[in-house]
Simulated scan of single mutants.
Amino acid sequence: MDKHPKGSSKVSGEVKRELLGAARRLLSNVGREGATMRAICSEAKVGPPTLYYYYGDLNGLHRAAIDETYQEVAKAYQIGTEQRGALQGVREGWETFMLFAKREPNMCRVVMRQIIDGEPPSLVASTLQKVAEDLSQIDGRGFMNLSATDTAQLLWMSALGSICFALGNADSERTAFLQRSMMDMTIDALIDHQDIGI
């Protein structure tokens, strides 16, 4: 029986979370093609009107699931930055993104498709802006080869390249080594971090 979208906020919140959880599971397990409205509603035990009520349409639910997935990368950057500065945040965010590609390749492909289609997760822009702001403190001390904004963009481009490489290669140990090497070389090329002890 369909759970009616109206009612107490607790029940309403639970139904919304169930839809989001079902979408994330299906996107991760079978990709966008398998995460249909019928499959999501069946798993969440609701009807299509409930999905429309909370997320507007299937694409809105998919985007919400993608946004929630990307929050892990943004959070890893934030925690690393708070603990040891912007470069550590970059490393933590990068490694979390790479781990995500290894752990959930189908969902990662969905995220990458959104990025390629010009509709990245909603937190990407604000995360890149935050990275640029954090790196500007290093830039102000003369240790960066490009502007903080350009550096943040190049780090993002390198991470996306590493993700694409990982999704197309089965040798996970070798891939992980190459991803770390790409991260290190990118940071070394952009920032004279040895001089600042980072």
Results as ranks from 00 to 15, higher is better:
M1A: 14
D2H: 08
P5H: 06
P5Y: 02
S8V: 01
S9G: 00
K10E: 15
S12N: 11
E14H: 10
V15S: 02
E18I: 00
L19M: 05
L19Q: 08
L20S: 13
L20A: 10
A22C: 06
A22I: 02
R24I: 08
R24C: 11
L27G: 15
S28F: 10
V30R: 04
G31K: 04
R32T: 07
G34T: 03
A35L: 09
A35H: 04
A35Y: 02
T36N: 00
M37F: 01
R38Q: 14
E43Y: 03
K45G: 10
P49H: 07
P49G: 05
L51E: 01
Y52L: 10
Y55C: 08
Y55D: 09
Y55K: 01
G56D: 07
G56C: 06
D57H: 07
G60S: 04
L61P: 14
H62L: 01
H62Q: 09
I66Q: 06
I66L: 14
D67L: 04
A74L: 04
Q78A: 15
Q78S: 15
I79Y: 06
T81Y: 11
E82G: 15
A86V: 12
V90E: 07
G93V: 04
W94N: 04
F97T: 01
F97N: 00
L99A: 12
A101Q: 10
K102A: 13
N106K: 11
C108F: 01
V111M: 12
Q114D: 13
I116F: 07
I116Y: 06
E119R: 13
S122H: 09
S122Q: 13
V124L: 12
S126G: 08
T127K: 01
T127A: 07
K130F: 08
K130T: 13
S136I: 03
S136K: 10
Q137N: 08
G140I: 00
G140F: 04
R141G: 07
G142K: 08
G142T: 07
F143M: 06
M144F: 00
N145F: 06
N145I: 05
A148R: 00
A152V: 03
Q153P: 01
L155I: 15
L155G: 09
L155H: 03
W156A: 06
L160D: 04
I163A: 15
C164V: 08
F165R: 12
A166R: 11
L167N: 12
L167V: 10
G168I: 00
N169C: 10
R174F: 14
A176F: 11
R180T: 08
S181H: 13
S181A: 14
M182H: 01
D184Y: 09
I187W: 03
L190S: 09
I191D: 09
H193I: 02
H193D: 13
D195M: 05
D195H: 05
I198Q: 13
